[in-house]
Design a protein around this nucleic acid. Sequence first.
DNA 1: GTGAAAGCGCTAACAC
DNA 2: GTGTTAGCGCTTTCAC
Lengths: 336, 336
Amino acid sequence: MRQKVTLKMLSLELGLSISTVSKSLKNDPEISQATIERVRKLAKERNYKPNALAVSLKSNKTRSIGVIIPDILNNFFAKVLLGIEIEASKNNYKIITSISNESFEKEKEYLDMLSYNGVDGFILAVSQEAQTKGEFDHFNEVLKDDIPIVMFDRVADDVYCDKVIVDDKKGAGDAVDKLINSGCKRIGVVSTIQKLSVGKERYEGVERRIKSYEKETKILKLKKTKDYEEQIADFVKDNNYDGIIGLDETAAVSAVNAANILGLKVPEKLSVIGFTNGILSRHSYPKLTTVSQHGRRMGSLAAKILIDKLELRAERYLPETKVIKTSIIERGTTSN
Amino acid sequence: MRQKVTLKMLSLELGLSISTVSKSLKNDPEISQATIERVRKLAKERNYKPNALAVSLKSNKTRSIGVIIPDILNNFFAKVLLGIEIEASKNNYKIITSISNESFEKEKEYLDMLSYNGVDGFILAVSQEAQTKGEFDHFNEVLKDDIPIVMFDRVADDVYCDKVIVDDKKGAGDAVDKLINSGCKRIGVVSTIQKLSVGKERYEGVERRIKSYEKETKILKLKKTKDYEEQIADFVKDNNYDGIIGLDETAAVSAVNAANILGLKVPEKLSVIGFTNGILSRHSYPKLTTVSQHGRRMGSLAAKILIDKLELRAERYLPETKVIKTSIIERGTTSN
DNA sequence: GTGAAAGCGCTAACAC
DNA sequence: GTGTTAGCGCTTTCAC
């Protein structure tokens, strides 16, 4: 750690007391203008910066935010992280990034460790394991200690905290509309995320909308044991689909590639629409039409909410749930 | 922040002094076994955890590592971050993640802010701007203050610190070999990263190896103003290439897609090999053969080096540069 | 208008 | 074997 300039050093050099120096730097009206200027001048010269650790110890605030992410290799989460980071840095907050790797244990551990002495609040997406197990006590414990949490994307309904989610059901419905308008008659769904709440949510949205067209659909839950492309190719062939909705980016891109295997032209013979407007979607061939969750915006919004709560703690208002609207990014796997 | 159990509380409850309690928790031999046990028992009951802030203030160590990454949306960096996080968490270090977004100013700002009072050391990849400008003083300042830095992937030769790099030149040579062995006669290079040291390094490696086969090559620097695919398609057609080396993942995947535009079968008519074994490579069609940098390993190695240095500060050994060997991941865009 | 003193929670040298 | 004390760097109340 850097050899620091302290208040003590400044006070010694100026022949003033530590407290006078401290007050001067805060422009305390008690102090004469002349002194304030002398102090500030030297402080600037010496490049004085307060010791954040000492300030934190005193104030019980660290100006840091714990971010717990299930999977950093997932482009969506990377986007959210970026959004959080930008907003935090704007407000002079640091972020401590932890990766739960979808594990309940790790999530709990991080929550525990960081809440104890490290962060003023959390931003997180619930791990898959916690979600399947329905274990949410670890969140409530943190909240009980008055450390705010903002959940995004994957949230726990039973936990009473701020949330930022996406209207997945509606987005899924829009995806159906898009395919229907592209002229699709038979639409199938493929997914690698049916264990997650978002996956279920999206499928529900698809199903409902499909029904409104008096049609039916089926879902293919992709298995890791076999090539996604092949599973999808079989699925499309067997059901004679001309439209595929991929509930996550991987599934959707795999569907596009499956068309290649089958020799089906996209979008002429097979239309595809995916979720998550990530890097994969922009680099498939043809480029994928997707329902965008606006991950970055989601991240910055979550950070904004948390920081607001942290700063104007005074009136502790009630938790709110913000819903981000999805939008369809039209590219080459659907036609108009 | 959580309502904490402090040493003071324990000491009050036990009728002992604070220091006795403190020592007991450290199993100090000065303290009687009986007392130690009493103290530990209560501490466990009360779920006592030392206040990290106070410990940090005292010890001048924060057990946190500043990680500065140029671009978190880049899958390679995400992988490295994952490697760092895992290793750090194993050693009970926190990581503070900052994203320079390739900007020199941001990089400097983060370095400054975190070095002043926040982290024990840094792990970073140099931003593009700093690299093109050749501005490295901000790193030296930090080092001067005795805060260790470990650079990875994108390093600054002039800065005297630990480094973890990849043998890009050799990897590039291997890529050439691979294409030649696949039967390629005319090999072209495409890249989106020619401003970066890694880009230059890789191109040099390609050029040299190509020469050893008494062949020639050219490089296409992709411009953001136009579709990558189209630029590459023209490049391939004009030069009649049957092999393409993409110096980064985006360029390589775009080359595969360009083949689609040209109606060239991959790998029969056009072989492609890329760098960075990321998510894009696994989801192109056909799946991309790549030179892997082993990002995750890189991250964990960097973290290991830093933590080692931090913990056994005693013998301050000289900075070292570790070279990670690349390896070729064979997939569908090359033949044997 | 300036300074002394206490205290945030912990550690460690030193006393008893 | 246990306790006292000083101090990490800062803020803040209270005294002068």
